[in-house]
Design a binder for these strands. Structure first.
Length: 618
RNA sequence: GGAGCGGUAGUUCAGUCGGUUAGAACGCCAGCCUGUCACGUUGGAGGUCGCGGGUUCGAGCCCCGUCCGCUCCGCCA
């Protein structure tokens, strides 16, 4: 820091070594303690706290003025560093051995009483957002924002060292036919036409590969006009990466190094690499999710061998019809409450369960001390099945086993959701500092969408089919084709994903056709990329990481709003600036745009009525 | 679009079976206090119980509607 008239040091930097020196500090009144004679003020700047002391015998005029100081006033003080009186050192403070005896006081700005106290947590998120600039003054927020900077910086440095070149791609670009809803921007100079804000710089970064850049990255703002969540904002930041002449393992290794560098910079931890790698099929079979949280067990077990010949008709017929019978053993959860049981069933129904209740077995000891298998289906099982089931699921006293019989997809969806909920009920991740990174690979290339009555890309239309599955694509067995696609997952959160791309024009055109995009539409929307691929496009691939989520997990926060300086609320509004806002007619006219929205008149009508008929009493 | 939880002092919250003047802590204001650091101490101010309607002798509490916030589902290639 270069000293200037405002300060010679930051508030955290004063030590016993400065005793006797004259220093100047600037900052905020963190707390003021008036003892009638002597007055203490904890002065805070972004680096820390120092106690400054006002004594009447040192400077009566300054001491008198110091009595007027209130929390969050902005001060500049000059004073002499002194060792604190013996017995009054404060070990909780980095600067607790010393204090500054003030000789000059300049009040740079007064602060009114704040709408909330900075030294207490507050639950009112509207208020935090309305006064976000005050919320950000709080230590937790300031720590998060600065930690995010370190993480971003580490990513930039790491990628730079690996030969990646940062390139800015346009924010004003074209709408995308698939995927999330776009934010649109009217194009004044092309009347009647629109830009869209990018959901990702996907096509541009692939074109940079055609351009021969070979290694690109960008800390890119992306936009998606979809509903929000604790881990989803309409504008968010991706670390976007693309490289040429690379294979899938190259990308995975690179990203492991990158994440290790980011977590080292952000949290000081060393992440072991390589990460666990798991196929999509395995993730779904074992965890019912393509972003499994492996900090706890509760794995899904396939029960086909146990029930293939079962006398219990529902299980046997499901298996004979090509379905699955699967189970989760919730160890030690026989004490589940009725409320919890209802909640699990609700979740299962929401996830697509066709019946009203999850089948279960509850294992408890009865009054005689015998193990009792409380279950609506126990009586249907042969002794041999019971034995096999107990052995396969390692069923013991106090366990609670859930079953689902149905299609593979249903079993994954339902048991996957139930698994997460049980873990939450049992507080299995409480206090855990585990960082369970893993890769999910071999995603399916395509999925059938009943709503759109067509095949859609699971990842995106530029994803490369696995070479060995190309015959399946040609044979029209779209559901069986696997992609050169991969997601990186941490503790049940998808941190990012990517793929090796298609670089051949004809394969890309074939892919568009499979997705139901006609040759004419391909020409209109994708001619630039199809054409580019005819001029010597190198094999390439890449990935994008969600920087906000990473920053959230590094900070140990539950919401990405805690690591974004000015986030939007649930309804995508900024309560501080009251954005979005209406614009006047002239502004719209210039853009050749007109709103079709009709404001609801109810409020007006209601207020008019109360004006005509005021309350009768009083 | 759907479900759940919440909305009481500036803030965080309590408020019993529907029953007297709606409480506490912190903060705020004023006084006292020369070694505190969550200073202490004395006193004081501060409430449209989100809003509207209903039930009732009586509503913060019950019912209906509505607004706002958060969480989740749908959605997010």
């Amino acid at each position: 820091m270069i000293p200037n008239p405002y300060r010679s040091l930051h508030c955290n930097a004063i030590t016993a070594a400065h005793v006797g020196q004259l220093v100047t500090l600037s900052g905020w009144v963190h707390s003021a303690r008036d003892h009638g004679g002597v007055i203490f003020v904890d002065l805070r700047d972004r680096e820390g706290l120092t106690q400054v002391v006002f004594r009447p015998e040192e400077n009566a005029e300054v001491a008198a003025r110091s009595q007027e100081l209130r929390d969050e006033d902005v001060l500049q003080i000059t004073g002499r560093v002194e060792r604190r009186l013996t017995g009054t050192e404060n070990p909780k403070l980095a600067t607790g051995e010393v204090e500054v005896v003030v000789t000059e006081l300049l009040v740079l700005n007064r602060a009114e009483v704040l709408p909330f106290q900075l030294d207490r947590e507050l639950s009112n998120e509207d208020l935090r957002m309305k006064y976000r600039y005050l919320d950000l003054r709080r230590e937790r927020m300031s720590r998060n924002i600065r930690q995010r900077h370190r993480i971003t910086n580490a990513a930039r440095n790491f990628l730079d060292e690996q030969g990646f070149v940062e390139v800015e791609t346009p924010v004003l670009s074209n709408p995308t036919p698939e995927g999330a809803r776009d934010f649109l921007v009217p194009a004044r100079l092309s009347p009647g036409k629109f830009f869209a804000l990018p959901q990702a710089p996907q096509q541009y970064k692939q074109l940079l590969m055609v351009a021969g850049l070979e290694r690109y990255f960008q800390i890119a703002r992306c936009f998606r006009d979809e509903d929000l969540r604790a881990d989803r904002q309409p504008e968010f930041t991706q670390i976007d990466i693309e490289a040429s002449f690379v294979t899938q393992p190259d990308i995975l290794n690179l990203v492991e190094g990158l994440l290790a560098a980011m977590f080292k910079a952000g949290r000081g931890v060393d992440i072991p690499t390589p990460f666990l790698r798991m196929t999509y099929q395995e993730a779904m079979d074992r965890f019912g999710s393509d972003k499994p949280d492996t900090r706890y067990g509760l794995e899904i077990t396939d029960m086909a061998d146990v029930f293939a010949q079962s006398g219990f008709k529902i299980f046997r017929s499901t298996l004979e019809g090509g379905g699955v019978v699967r189970a989760i053993n919730a160890k030690g959860f026989a004490g589940i409450t009725t409320g919890q049981m209802i909640r699990l069933n609700d979740i299962a129904i929401q996830a697509g369960m066709k019946v009203k209740q999850l089948a279960f077995i509850k294992v408890e000891r009865d009054a005689q001390g015998n193990l009792e298998y409380k279950s609506p289906l126990w009586k249907f099982f042969e002794p041999s099945e019971r034995e096999a089931l107990i052995a396969k699921l390692n069923v013991e006293e106090n366990d609670l086993v859930f079953f689902y019989a149905g299609s593979w997809q249903e079993a994954c969806d339902i048991l996957g959701r139930v698994r997460c909920e049980i873990a939450q009920m049992q507080a299995l991740t409480e206090g855990s500092t585990a960082l369970n990174f893993l890769w999910v690979v071999d995603f399916p290339l395509l999925a059938y969408s009943p709503e759109e009555q067509s095949w859609v890309a699971v990842h995106h239309p530029f994803t490369r089919p696995k070479a060995e599955d190309l015959p399946l694509l040609e044979a029209g067995e779209y559901g069986k084709v696997r992609a050169e696609a991969y997601d990186v997952v941490l503790n049940g959160y998808e941190l990012g994903g990517g793929s090796i791309r298609i670089h051949e024009s004809d394969l890309q055109a074939r892919m568009f056709s499979v997705l139901g995009i006609s040759p004419e539409e391909q020409q209109v929307k994708f001619s630039h990329i199809l054409e580019a691929f005819r001029f010597g496009a190198p094999p390439h691939g890449g990935l994008a990481l969600g920087l906000d989520r990473i920053a959230m997990l590094v900070a140990g926060e539950q919401s990405i709003r805690e690591v974004i300086a000015f986030p939007k609320n649930n309804k995508a509004c900024d309560l501080m600036t009251d954005s979005p806002t209406t614009v006047d007619f002239r502004q719209l006219r210039e853009l050749y745009v007109q709103s079709t929205y009709k404001e609801k008149r109810r409020e007006e009508a209601a207020s008019a009525e109360t004006a005509v008929n005021p309350p009768a009493d009083s």
